[in-house]
Deep mutational scan, measured.
Amino acid sequence: MDPFVVLVLCLSCLLLLSIWRQSSGRGKLPPGPTPLPVIGNILQIDIKDVSKSLTNLSKIYGPVFTLYFGLERMVVLHGYEVVKEALIDLGEEFSGRGHFPLAERANRGFGIVFSNGKRWKEIRRFSLMTLRNFGMGKRSIEDRVQEEARCLVEELRKTKASPCDPTFILGCAPCNVICSIIFQKRFDYKDQQFLNLMEKLNENIRIVSTPWIQICNNFPTIIDYFPGTHNKLLKNLAFMESDILEKVKEHQESMDINNPRDFIDCFLIKMEKEKQNQQSEFTIENLVITAADLLGAGTETTSTTLRYALLLLLKHPEVTAKVQEEIERVIGRNRSPCMQDRGHMPYTDAVVHEVQRYIDLIPTSLPHAVTCDVKFRNYLIPKGTTILTSLTSVLHDNKEFPNPEMFDPRHFLDEGGNFKKSNYFMPFSAGKRICVGEGLARMELFLFLTFILQNFNLKSLIDPKDLDTTPVVNGFASVPPFYQLCFIPV
Rank of each mutant, 00 (worst) to 15 (best):
D2N: 09
P3V: 14
F4T: 14
F4Y: 14
V8I: 14
V8S: 11
L11T: 15
L11D: 04
S12I: 12
L14R: 01
L16G: 11
L16H: 01
I19V: 11
I19T: 10
W20D: 01
S24G: 12
G27R: 10
P30V: 01
P30G: 00
P33D: 00
P33R: 01
P33M: 00
P33Y: 00
T34N: 11
T34L: 10
P35M: 04
P35Q: 05
P37F: 04
I39N: 04
I39R: 03
G40C: 00
L43Y: 10
I45T: 04
I45P: 03
D46Y: 05
K48G: 10
S51A: 12
S53Y: 03
N56F: 09
N56R: 15
L57R: 02
L57A: 05
L57S: 03
S58T: 08
K59G: 10
K59T: 10
K59I: 07
K59A: 11
I60V: 14
Y61M: 00
P63T: 06
P63M: 04
P63S: 11
F65K: 00
T66E: 02
L71Y: 13
E72A: 03
R73P: 14
V75D: 00
V76S: 02
V76N: 00
L77G: 00
L77E: 00
H78R: 04
G79R: 01
Y80A: 07
E81K: 10
V82H: 07
V83Q: 04
V83E: 03
K84F: 06
K84S: 10
E85M: 07
A86R: 01
L87R: 02
G91D: 12
E92D: 15
E92Q: 07
E93S: 11
F94C: 05
S95T: 07
S95D: 05
G96I: 04
G98Y: 04
G98I: 05
G98R: 13
H99L: 11
A103S: 09
E104Y: 08
E104S: 11
R105P: 04
R105L: 06
R105G: 04
G109H: 14
V113Q: 13
S115T: 14
N116M: 06
K118G: 10
I123G: 06
I123P: 01
R125M: 10
N133K: 09
M136Q: 15
M136E: 12
R139V: 15
I141K: 05
I141V: 13
E142I: 06
D143V: 08
V145A: 05
Q146Y: 08
A149R: 00
A149W: 03
R150V: 11
V153I: 09
V153G: 03
E155V: 09
E155Y: 13
E155H: 13
L156A: 05
L156H: 01
R157C: 10
P163G: 08
P163Q: 10
P163V: 09
P166S: 06
F168G: 12
I169C: 06
I169L: 15
I169Y: 11
L170N: 01
G171C: 13
V177N: 02
I178H: 07
S180C: 05
I182N: 02
Q184G: 15
K185L: 07
K190Y: 10
D191N: 12
E199C: 14
K200I: 11
K200R: 11
L201N: 07
E203P: 05
I207A: 07
I207D: 05
I207K: 05
T210Q: 12
P211E: 06
I215R: 06
F219G: 03
I223V: 08
I223Q: 06
D224R: 14
Y225C: 11
F226M: 15
K232Y: 07
L234T: 07
L237P: 04
E241C: 15
D243T: 12
I244N: 02
L245T: 08
E246I: 14
K247T: 09
Q252G: 07
Q252C: 09
E253I: 12
S254W: 06
S254D: 11
D256I: 07
I257V: 13
D262W: 01
I264G: 01
C266D: 12
F267A: 04
F267R: 01
I269H: 08
M271T: 07
E272N: 10
E272K: 15
E272D: 13
E274H: 09
N277W: 07
Q278S: 13
S280R: 07
S280Y: 05
S280D: 08
I284S: 06
N286T: 07
V288T: 09
V288G: 07
I289S: 10
I289G: 11
T290Q: 02
A292G: 09
A292D: 04
D293M: 04
D293F: 03
L294D: 01
A297Y: 07
A297H: 08
A297C: 06
G298C: 08
G298D: 01
G298L: 02
T299L: 01
S303W: 09
T304C: 14
T305Y: 04
T305P: 01
L306P: 01
L306H: 00
R307K: 15
Y308N: 06
Y308K: 03
L310A: 04
L310G: 03
L310R: 01
L311S: 04
L311D: 02
L311H: 04
L311V: 09
L312V: 07
L312A: 04
L312W: 02
L312K: 01
L313M: 11
E318N: 15
V319F: 07
A321M: 12
A321R: 14
Q324M: 10
E326N: 01
I327Q: 00
E328R: 15
E328C: 12
E328F: 14
E328N: 14
R329A: 12
V330G: 04
V330C: 11
V330W: 07
R333N: 14
P337R: 01
P337D: 01
C338S: 14
Q340F: 09
R342D: 03
Y347G: 00
T348A: 06
T348S: 06
A350I: 02
V351A: 06
H353R: 02
H353Q: 04
E354T: 02
V355F: 05
Q356N: 06
R357H: 00
I359A: 12
L361Q: 06
P363T: 01
T364R: 08
S365I: 07
S365D: 03
L366T: 04
P367K: 07
H368Q: 04
H368R: 12
A369C: 11
A369F: 06
V370H: 00
T371M: 09
T371A: 07
T371E: 09
C372R: 10
C372F: 07
C372S: 11
C372A: 13
D373L: 02
V374S: 05
F376D: 00
R377Q: 11
Y379T: 04
L380M: 13
L380Y: 06
K383A: 10
T385F: 02
L388M: 11
T389G: 02
T389V: 14
S390V: 12
L391G: 03
T392H: 15
V394A: 06
K399H: 13
K399Q: 15
E400I: 06
F401T: 01
F401S: 00
F401R: 02
N403V: 11
P404M: 04
E405S: 15
M406N: 13
F407S: 00
D408H: 05
D408N: 11
H411S: 02
F412P: 00
F412A: 00
F412L: 01
F412G: 00
L413C: 04
L413D: 00
D414T: 11
E415H: 09
F419W: 05
K420Q: 12
K421G: 11
S422Q: 03
S422N: 07
S422K: 03
N423R: 09
N423Y: 10
F425V: 03
F428M: 04
F428W: 05
S429A: 08
G431W: 01
G431Q: 02
R433Y: 03
I434D: 13
C435Q: 01
V436D: 02
V436L: 11
G437E: 02
E438K: 09
L440R: 02
F456V: 02
P464S: 13
P464Y: 13
D466E: 14
D468Y: 11
V472D: 10
V472R: 13
V473G: 08
N474V: 08
G475F: 15
A477Q: 15
V479S: 15
P480L: 06
L485N: 03
F487N: 00
